[in-house]
Computed example of a mutant assay.
Amino acid sequence: MNINNKDNNKEGRTPHIPSEYPYVPSDHPHAPSEHPHVPSDHPHVPSNHPHVPSEHSVRLSPPSEGLGEVSSQGLGEVPSHSPFSAVILAAGDFPNHVLPLRILRTAKNLIVCDGALEELLDYEIAPTAVVGDGDSLSEELKQRYAHIYHPISEQEFNDLTKATLFARSHLKMDASTHTRPRFCYLGATGKREDHTLGNISLMLYYYRQLAIDPVMITDYGYFVAASGSMRFASYPGQQVSIFNATCKELSSSGLKWDIYPFSELWQGTLNEALSSEFTVHADGDYLLYRTHKV
């Protein structure tokens, strides 16, 4: 795995971005009208699969995965512009992997939980907004960033959700486009384990309740929330874990071990992709995790 330490990454030296990230097909209902990396002959899963309604084929993977280019030579680099409506930086372990660091530098809307601001400034990256209850901010930083600091004192939601709700309401993403905004979450794992587990589980909440397509990227892999039967880009040997939320029917093709309607979180972990894509056949919601390419 290509991880650079903090000192090596401060200047944005990212010569190669890991190449396993899938694309957004142009016919996906949430995809941009033009996408430069979509092959015209991408196959569809047969519509007669037992878990796929006969009137349509399996949907392609969520648009939150539009991180790079797919080609016969593998995926290219993360584009110079961010494919996300918003990037939210939490106050967990600051990312070291070149991919999340590149995303931080190219984000057009970078919303920072207040506890992450000081470390972000070490990289000389300017946030769009700082959100939180202010307990983690020094008075000096509160004054210096008063023009973009948005204190939210209520305690019903954690800072990650406060930042998400702020982005949804203040960046005018609920408008008339009727498309799901794509949010990327960084720095949301590490440190306290209860915070990590809570932040990961919030991906499904944002997907179902806030109509967001979220992707959480760590130094080791990435989570996406999904619903129903979907096809996911991959690579041979990629480690895959699936966490069932509401599925009563759950199976797969293209994975080393077929999946089933898991009743425990651990049951869907430590699977493996066999080729450049795999399919999950489902009738409900689930979280899917894939590792970065080594």
Rank of each mutant, 00 (worst) to 15 (best):
N8Q: 15
R180L: 13
D213L: 14
D285R: 03
T161V: 11
P50E: 15
E69S: 15
S253F: 14
P79S: 08
E154V: 00
W257K: 10
S19A: 09
A225E: 01
A245C: 13
N109S: 14
D7M: 10
P181E: 10
T279G: 01
S234N: 11
V240P: 00
Y289E: 00
N5I: 08
Q155G: 03
K108W: 06
H37G: 05
R290E: 03
D219F: 04
A225T: 00
V130L: 04
P236S: 09
P62W: 06
E193K: 13
S169Q: 14
T179H: 11
E264I: 11
L274I: 11
T106Q: 14
S57V: 08
A90M: 08
P32K: 14
T269I: 06
L186Q: 07
M1L: 10
A226T: 04
E154K: 01
G92F: 02
H281M: 09
Y185T: 03
A86F: 02
F262P: 00
A233S: 12
S80K: 14
G12D: 01
M1R: 09
Y260R: 12
M230S: 13
A167P: 02
V58K: 06
D27G: 06
L270M: 12
N109I: 11
N2S: 08
W266N: 13
Q209Y: 02
T196R: 07
T246K: 02
F243C: 10
L186S: 04
L120A: 10
Q143V: 14
H35P: 02
G254A: 12
Y220G: 08
Y206P: 00
S251G: 13
D93W: 04
V215C: 08
A107P: 04
W257D: 15
E124Q: 14
S33Y: 12
